[in-house]
Amino acid sequence: MRRFSWFNATSLTLGFAFLYVPMIILVVYSFNESRLVTVWAGFSTRWYGELLRDQAFLDAAWVTVRVAFVSSTIATVLGTMAAYVLVRGGKFMGRTLFSGMIYAPLVMPEVITGLSLLLLFISIGLDRGIFTIILAHTTFSMCYVSVVVSSRLVSFDRSVEEAALDLGCTPFDAFRSVTLPLIAPAVIAGWLLAFTLSLDDLVIASFTAGPSATTLPIKIFSSVRMGVSPEINALSTILIGIVTVGVVTASLVSKRRIVQRERDEKMAGQTA
């Protein structure tokens, strides 16, 4: 029996307070009437209105969402292919280099990735803009997707795939009708991770964006450098709200699925 002492309770309370109090303060003060962010002057939704009227922010948000959507979708396809090759591909030439190139971007400092991609784009004469940000984001997020998907591929029973092949499926059919449904949760998780990473990225986007395209993090960063601003508080609150709803929903769904599976297993046990 594991004991839960007062020490454990204190460290959980203090730990979660540390994680959440800064964000709660941000949310509370986004409803502050005053432009002086640290002085409370009454409740108001004024900054949300100003934010929604700020065309530059809306444009940046739209660029960011488009970049995130396209790059995470390509990254999911490429990352799933890479994961399949790494786990099921067997031996091929340059395999070590391949797995090295999958893992290295995960630990590479963003400033280096950004700089190297920028120098590449300049040396091949590619104009910087939305397209180059998409290329850059796809490159690093496909590695994250591939790690998520390959951990799922490793863990499931290979014999179902083999059974499909024995029963006359082509390898592609076997992948589509057996493997893909089994790894689907990991593929979706990988896409969400890639999407979030792309939404969030400041450094690589700053290097690869060029003057013609501005993403939301670039916009936030340039106004945050001047200090705290109530519009940014409002924007943060909106983003925190979206993430919270997303994560809570995802964890409720997965909890329901676990409960459902346990019930099914019990039923199967009774009938057997």
Binding site: P22, M23, I25, L26, Y29, V37, T38, T196, L199, D200, L202, P217, I220, F221, V224, G227, V228, I232, S236, L239, I240, V243, G246, V247
Partner: peptide, 13 residues
């Protein structure tokens, strides 16, 4: 999952 930039920004205030 929340924006890295925003979590750093929260500490400025």
């Amino acid at each position: 999952w929340t924006s890295f930039l925003i979590r750093v920004y929260a500490w400025i205030g």
